[in-house]
């Protein structure tokens, strides 16, 4: 092989012999070429100030935060208070609450399609000012009804943590 030539093989080739009109004037009529790109990446993601929440899930604890100044209590934690801007403290949330609203996802984004149908719900807790987004397990996804609102539910934790918010989910009390 001569040295001023890129070595070629057919690895990665998706199409051989692309037709091309000889007349440059006809090129505007050429059908668009559509190729497939692959794109994949691993992110190194820090949970940063939210980290205690995920460490809590791994220890069967559901953590929220409470503002040290105005006492506003967050069902989904944040390190600083939205109401007064002061730092919040970590607190244990009640592990029982009620369904505030819900849906049944029969489709989802690609990552979750294989999990459909799944039930999403926002949970309200007594004495807590904001809600918590979670999955509800143990209800029939085909039997969705507004009557599910107000249903009492309790937290359950995955035994093997994945360090994602789905390490906790909720089930109806009494099942």
């Amino acid at each position: 092989m001569s040295e001023n030539r890129v070595p070629e093989d057919d690895e990665g080739t998706v199409l051989f012999r692309v037709p091309l009109p000889k007349d440059p004037g006809a090129l505007k009529g050429l059908a668009p070429l559509i190729i497939k790109h692959h794109y994949e990446i691993d992110y190194i993601h820090s949970y940063a100030q939210d980290s205690p929440f995920f460490a809590g899930l791994a220890n069967q604890r559901l953590l929220g935060t409470r503002c040290g100044s105005c006492n506003y209590t967050y069902g989904t934690p944040r390190a600083h208070c939205m109401e007064c801007g002061r730092p919040c403290d970590w607190v244990d949330l009640p592990q029982e609450g009620q369904i505030h609203t819900f849906t049944v996802c029969h489709y989802g984004s690609e990552e979750f399609l294989k999990e459909t149908p799944y039930i999403l719900a926002l949970i309200e807790f007594p004495g807590v000012d904001t809600l918590f987004l979670t999955r509800v397990v143990g209800l029939d996804p085909q039997a969705s009804s507004l009557d599910w609102i107000g249903m009492r539910v309790k937290a359950r934790f995955r035994r093997l943590s994945t360090f994602r918010p789905t390490d906790v989910y909720f089930v109806p009390i009494g099942t």
Binding site: Y47, C105, G108, S109, E111, L120, R135, P165
Partner: peptide, 12 residues
């Protein structure tokens, strides 16, 4: 952190 991994779906 808190929404996408649970629901991941705007229609939901």
């Amino acid at each position: 952190n808190f929404d996408y991994p649970v629901g991941g779906f705007y229609s939901g």
